[in-house]
Amino acid sequence: MEANMPFAKITGSGGYLPPRVVTNNDLAAELATRGVETSDEWIIERTGIRQRYIADADTRTSALATRAAQMAMDDAGISAGDVDLIILATSTPDFIFPSTACIVQANLGIRQGAAFDVQAVCSGFVYALTTADAFIKAGHAKTALVIGAEVFSNILDWNDRKTCVLFGDGAGAIVLQASDAPGIVGAELHADGSQAGILNASGNVCGGKVVGDPFLRMDGQAVFKMAVNALSKSAQDVCAKSGVQLSDIDWMVPHQANIRIINFLGKKLGIAPEKVVVTVDQHANTSAASVPLALNTARRDGRIKSGDLVLMQGVGGGFTWGSVLARM
């Protein structure tokens, strides 16, 4: 990589959601057939979610990821021959192996560079973006596709009202390229494996059989407390490390898990509601896809502009969390 290009900058974004929209009323009607009670009012009051997108049973994560990645490439004006790194964040890969990133690489006709998955659940995109930034700054890549993609509907227990109303499917992607102008200006990643039990899907395949519980389980109160405390400190730390003030942030793009967490976090950090990108009402929680989907939504509708300072944050099972500051 040229000596005068020590930075990594976001040059394009894309997002893709499966065609099927499931409103809260639709979901309540479906769950009623299973004897599970819920309602539009109950879901909105506790989560802020009004609808989500659910993939067909035969749709794999790679299909959603490929569409989002192609949109990001088109937005950045690059072709398959330009990409020399693909990092895909997901907790719902197509297979045990090969990686979903390798499948996307083949789908896009890319024949060079590295491709691998990152598993940090809802923090996955922030982890993947930080990793791609390090690759580019070290001179190991010039143009990276960073993708968050999930088909979380495959690991939901549709008899568990506490979790099944929260999630949706989708994919978001960005193009990150070597640049002579600052782009990713700071990052902080953390994990606390001792908290693995508050959010997990602990089943596995052994001897051709599912062993343990294959569905997502969550202690909602513990996750809420952990998320708000971890993300507020992470935001403060990444700003201090990067030499900027919280007041310098033009946009916060948080993980889209729950409107209560988003609102509480914004208030705790002193970031005005009009500076916070919210898509949880339309997309629900799409795990590793939530941050890039929200970023792409705000770029496409004109809110996030070139030169804006954006704080992106993820928090999820592991327990993992992190923040990235990016100058667009």
Rank of each mutant, 00 (worst) to 15 (best):
I198S: 01
A171F: 11
S179C: 12
C164N: 03
R217E: 07
A196F: 11
L189V: 10
K209E: 14
E188P: 00
G168P: 00
F215D: 10
F215V: 09
R161H: 02
L166S: 05
L145Q: 01
L189P: 10
Q195P: 00
S153F: 05
L166G: 02
P214T: 10
G212N: 11
Q195A: 14
V165H: 00
W158R: 06
L156N: 08
G170C: 11
G208F: 10
D219C: 00
I147E: 02
L145P: 03
G197Y: 15
E150A: 04
S202H: 11
A149W: 03
W158E: 00
T143Y: 02
V210S: 04
D219A: 12
S179T: 11
V210C: 13
I174F: 09
S153A: 07
E150S: 05
Q195E: 12
N159A: 11
T163W: 05
N154G: 02
A173V: 08
L216D: 09
A171I: 07
D160A: 07
R217T: 15
I198K: 10
L145V: 03
V210N: 08
G172C: 03
A171Q: 07
V146Q: 03
R161C: 04
C206R: 15
G183M: 13
H140C: 12
Q195H: 13
F215C: 06
G197A: 15
S153H: 02
A201M: 09
N200V: 11
G170V: 05
N200R: 13
S153R: 05
D219Q: 14
G148V: 06
V146G: 02
L156E: 10
A178D: 09
G208K: 05
G220L: 04
Q195G: 12
M218H: 02
N159D: 14
E188W: 06
N154D: 11
D192S: 12
G212A: 06
D157S: 09
A141T: 09
I198P: 06
G193T: 03
I184F: 01
L176W: 14
R217V: 13
G168F: 00
N204K: 14
V210M: 14
V151S: 00
D180Y: 05
I174W: 02
D219G: 06
V205D: 01
D180H: 10
S153G: 07
D180F: 04
P214N: 10
G139R: 06
D160H: 01
L145G: 05
N204G: 14
N159W: 03
G148L: 06
Q195F: 14
D157R: 00
D160V: 04
N154L: 09
V185Y: 02
G148Q: 04
G212C: 05
F152A: 15
A149L: 04
K162M: 01
V175Y: 11
L216I: 15
N204R: 15
A141W: 12
A144F: 00
